[in-house]
Write a protein that binds this DNA or RNA. Structure first.
Lengths: 244, 244
DNA sequence: ACAAAAGTGTTGGTGTTACACCCATGG
DNA sequence: CCATGGGTGTAACACCAACACTTTTGT
């Protein structure tokens, strides 16, 4: 209590916060094998005109997750998605609206991580806010600490993919094993695993049901369509490294 | 934008927040093989006199992590510890200070997860706030949603233990392999793994250095003291299931 | 000498890796 | 008939669980 505090203001005065929610929304363009992240051009200060993660301030009576879903709904039409809380960034001076010597409000960002089905995720056109999918490797300098948040979300995506069945929230109901393999490849990088071993491991685990329906994609032998069985997966929850 | 909002207040009005930090602080009493969590009896309303996680509201100029360390420092003297952010609980009406129809402030809790060395963690006596270590199985009903936060932290602890070397932030500099084994046992439950297999696996990984110093603990053959080598561990980062 | 704790070894089974190979189709 | 992508098989090896066994101490 008697400890000296280096801050500029009375150390016992509570901070007042505005709480924002920022979303790191990923999708996989399976046709072109690209991992995409949704960015929007800011229309308000600060950082007006620059790119940033889609975000919003939390309204009265609104839950954090509620705000996260609201952002999503304002930007894209997405029926199939996975969403979870990522991290809370709350240091002082992460937002220029906090003037250095002000007794004013602090800005805190609770970030959410989402994965959506690309083919279905129609961008909602907006005359003011320019919103686009960016290839992950080509993301520019972003507003605030959003590059850092994005980096954090990207790490979470790769980790999550290894033990969590989030791929099936986002793949079509029926998919071939190559579809699944390519999905993993575009996120984790090519040669993340041998294809035939990937097949064998997953099929042995028994939560992929072969529908026996065959589809032909150009030349080559037709592939079987599979379906994810959540019930059969249940016992593998919190078992690590299921997919790799 | 035209979507109807079920909340009681104007859906476009931003919420004002007070941000609290609540800590789930664990320690392992290795002498008695008990996993402990630090609780303190609240001296202020709401829930005055009831047990809760040690927490504080964030002050002006203070970072979230800074607030987390401040709580720790106010409750216990701890030199060796591990601390990371856990989760942010921020739904409306999680704090009774938000009256149902008020336009007033919302209370949000950013929770942190900590593991400290029990032997060194001297409780700082406080005439008002009663602070104690509770055996995890005997935690009573807590204030707010703190039981939920604790449950979340407990899950994180068990997961983290499996792939992260947090045990070595909290064990003494030199320890025997039985010390390490017991540490894991008290957190993950007895028979989480066969002792001799646990030994062999860890030693083969090569980040435990045998100092050749022997210690005798009562009867039985004296044990070697080992030291954790962070450099040798580095390549195993983000490899899963290192310890079990 | 005996119990207790530390540490080593063995064995059968399971999983993984890195391939080679066969199958069905389009052009 | 051959290139292409889908799918199966396998030999070598690493790993792992379970348990028996040896070593070194205190009493």
């Amino acid at each position: 209590m008697t400890k000296s505090d280096p801050s500029l203001v009375n150390s016992k005065v509570l901070a007042d916060f505005k709480v924002g929610v920022d979303n790191v929304i990923f999708s996989v363009d399976t046709k072109q094998n690209r991992l995409l992240v949704l960015l929007s051009k800011r229309k308000d200060e600060p950082f007006s005109g620059e790119w940033g993660l889609p975000g919003t301030l939390v309204r009265q009576g609104e839950s954090l997750e509620g705000a996260a879903y609201r952002i999503l709904a304002e930007k894209i039409e997405a029926k199939n998605l996975y969403l979870e809380q990522l991290y809370t960034f709350g240091g002082p001076n992460r937002d220029p609206r906090e003037s250095p010597h002000s007794f004013g409000v602090r800005y805190l960002s609770v970030s959410y991580f989402a994965l959506v089905r690309y083919e279905e995720a129609q961008l909602i056109p907006d005359q003011f806010n320019n919103t686009t999918w960016y290839i992950i490797e080509k993301v520019p300098q972003l507003a605030f600490d959003h590059n850092q948040i994005l980096e954090y979300g990207y790490r979470r995506l790769r980790n999550k993919l290894e033990y969590s069945p989030i791929a099936f929230d986002v793949l079509p109901e029926l998919f071939t094993l190559s579809d699944l393999y390519q999905f993993y490849e575009t996120i984790l990088g090519t040669n993340f695993a041998d294809y035939s071993n990937f097949r064998n491991r997953l099929l042995k685990l028994g939560f992929l049901l072969d529908t026996e329906i065959k589809v032909s994609r150009g030349a080559g032998r037709p592939a079987s369509l599979y379906r994810f069985d959540p019930v059969a997966f249940a016992p593998l929850k919190d078992k690590p490294m299921v997919f790799i």
